[in-house]
């Protein structure tokens, strides 16, 4: 009997190291491409992630201390803003776009619907200073943080000195955002042979591969490119997308292809949030495409789906829901008193 006890202890050591591995701050899921983000310039650290997380949830980033990142990027909705077609900021001002969901950002090479931002670190500057979002300046954010004893302690813990700087604020927010990896949906379990699709989900997956996957490419469910997906121009918003950045006519009405991961929770859809349901989105792709000059090459041929096929496809899209991401306590609200 005693000999057996020794063996159990050995196995226990093995388990411990497995747990330690799972506790990595960031890991690229199996079969995924290499992340684009250069971690050598901003290597992840628990105290920096915590600081970034607190900043993410703190309205101190806005001019009148009312709007935090999480106002438009709620964790329970895959970090987007549900129920609002267009995101709103300080003083109830309304922007022109639907806030994108935040996940798997380490793999993205550009940010915003029009790709105006070239690096994750610099992304937060845009909403902080936009008049219809936080209406603040990074200079003033840094001043406010420098005056806060709570933040002084956090900066000290993270950077070894208590001074808040623009670089540190931005890099800390990046650190938190980099940890937002969603790779644990039913779809992922199927790909990793740990589960199997229902017959309907499987049919839907086949339809997806045939009609959707050239833009919404696995495993990120976006090819990260800019495409015109045939939406009519909104006459009030007059948002021509990427052309604003490149000033090139070929980019007119192009927007970044969004991920479909957690699509169940990221409604409304499209850059201006015009569709409330997945059904409306599918109807657009089968019957609503407008053939503008810059329409995506991949949409030139009409997509034909009957009602049953749309249901099958929707069933598959729901397998992209990742509850361990949506309800991960590590991503939730935190302030510096905690």
């Amino acid at each position: 009997m005693k000999i057996k006890l020794l063996l159990i202890l050995l196995i226990f050591t093995g388990l411990m190291s497995f747990v330690a591995h799972k506790d990595l701050l960031f890991f690229a899921p199996k079969k995924w491409p290499k992340p684009v983000y250069n971690f050598t310039n901003n290597s992840l650290d628990k105290t920096k992630i915590k600081l970034g997380r607190i900043l993410f949830y703190d309205p101190i980033l806005s001019k009148n201390n009312t709007i935090s990142c999480a106002n438009c990027h709620s964790p329970y909705n895959a970090f987007t803003h549900v129920d609002h077609a267009l995101s709103h900021g300080i003083g109830d001002s309304i922007g022109i776009r639907n806030s994108p969901a935040l996940m798997n950002l380490a793999w993205h090479k550009s940010f915003m619907w029009d790709g105006a931002v070239n690096h994750l670190d610099m992304q937060a500057l845009s909403p902080i200073s936009h008049l219809d979002e936080m209406g603040e300046t990074i200079e003033n954010v840094v001043l406010k943080l420098q005056q806060s004893n709570g933040y002084k302690r956090l900066f000290y813990k993270a950077y070894g000195d208590s001074l808040a700087t623009g670089e540190r604020v931005l890099k800390s927010i990046s650190q938190f955002m980099l940890t937002l990896v969603s790779s644990n949906s039913k779809y992922d379990s199927v790909i990793n042979m740990k589960a199997s699709f229902s017959i309907q989900e499987k049919k839907g997956y086949t339809i997806f591969l045939k009609n959707c996957s050239s833009c919404h490419t696995e495993p990120l469910f976006t090819n990260l490119n800019f495409e015109n997906n045939g939406l009519s121009l909104d006459k009030d918003l007059k948002d021509y997308g990427r052309i604003k950045v490149t000033q090139s006519a070929k980019d007119s009405l192009k927007f970044k292809v969004p991920t479909l991961r957690n699509i169940e929770f990221t409604y409304p859809y499209m850059h201006d949030g015009r569709f409330k349901t997945i059904g409306e989105v599918l109807n657009h792709y089968t019957d609503g495409i407008i053939h503008y000059k810059t329409l995506s090459q991949l949409l030139q041929k009409k997509i034909k789906l009957n009602a049953d096929e749309k249901v099958d496809l929707t069933t598959f899209l729901l397998t992209l829901t990742d509850k361990s991401f949506l309800f991960n306590p590590k991503f939730g609200y935190l302030n510096f008193r905690q």
Binding site: N118, H119, L120, I138, E167, L170, S174
Partner: peptide, 24 residues
């Protein structure tokens, strides 16, 4: 340097020499 992410010192975006609405 324009594509390298957040930097400090004189390249810190608080120096008022960085565009926020379109990077650079």
């Amino acid at each position: 340097a324009n594509s390298a992410g957040a930097m400090g010192g004189i390249l810190d975006p608080t120096k008022g020499m960085y565009w926020t609405w379109q990077n650079g």
